[in-house]
Amino acid sequence: MKILVTVDGSDISSRALKFALKLAKQSTAASSVTVLHVDPPVFPGVERRIGKEAVQAYHADNHAHVFKTARKALGRSQVAVEEVAATGEIAETILAVAAKRKVDLLVMGSHGRSAVKGVLLGSVSSKVIAQTTIPVTVVR
């Protein structure tokens, strides 16, 4: 079973990662977990002002921080785990990575660190669920 779990450094995404690892361990087939962090792009014009290298360093720092938090949640897991860092619109990038990797299940937190949250589900979770045919498990 190929599982893609999205992380953003929040407690909910850590719970989603732990849940994905538990599913992978319980699976009778060989399982792998891909841990994905998508950093949203900077506002238009920022790269022109601060430079391409500064923007790349900014994204690299964000990815490093989130993966450091995710590694704590991984603990001593015996499941094959791969980290993937991407930059782009969050829901669209999650869907693209899931399709490219042909995952069997997508696991994500109900809402993350975004400023705008839905009543029950975050806007990213809602978009992903509405636009994919891959099974999605939302962890609260």
Rank of each mutant, 00 (worst) to 15 (best):
A24V: 13
D61T: 08
T34E: 05
V35R: 02
N62A: 14
S31F: 03
F19G: 00
L17P: 10
F43A: 14
R49A: 14
F67S: 11
V55S: 04
L23C: 05
V66R: 00
H63S: 14
D39M: 04
I50Y: 05
N62G: 08
V66E: 08
R49C: 07
N62I: 11
G51V: 07
L21W: 07
A57S: 14
A24H: 03
P44W: 02
G45F: 09
A20H: 01
F67G: 07
H65M: 06
Q56N: 14
V35C: 02
Q56V: 02
A57E: 13
K52V: 12
G51Q: 10
L23Y: 05
A29I: 01
N62W: 06
V38K: 03
F67C: 09
A30P: 11
H63D: 09
A57Q: 15
V38Q: 04
A54P: 02
R49T: 13
A57H: 11
F19W: 11
S27Q: 12
S32N: 11
V42S: 01
P40N: 12
H37F: 05
D39F: 10
L17K: 05
A30G: 12
E53S: 13
T34Y: 04
D39N: 15
K18I: 04
P40T: 06
V38M: 03
K22N: 06
V46S: 07
R48A: 13
E47C: 03
T34K: 00
S31V: 01
A29Q: 07
P40V: 09
K25I: 10
T34C: 07
E47F: 11
A64L: 04
F43H: 07
N62S: 15
A60T: 05
P40W: 07
Y58N: 10
L36N: 07
K18A: 09
A60F: 09
S31H: 08
P41K: 10
V46R: 02
K18P: 00
T28I: 10
L36W: 03
A60N: 08
T28A: 10
K68Q: 11
F19Y: 13
S32W: 00
K22E: 14
G45W: 13
A20V: 03
V38E: 04
E47D: 09
K22A: 14
S31E: 10
H65F: 10
F43T: 04
L36K: 02
F43G: 00
K52C: 07
P44C: 05
V55F: 01
F67L: 15
H37K: 01
T69S: 08
H37G: 06
F67E: 03
E47A: 03
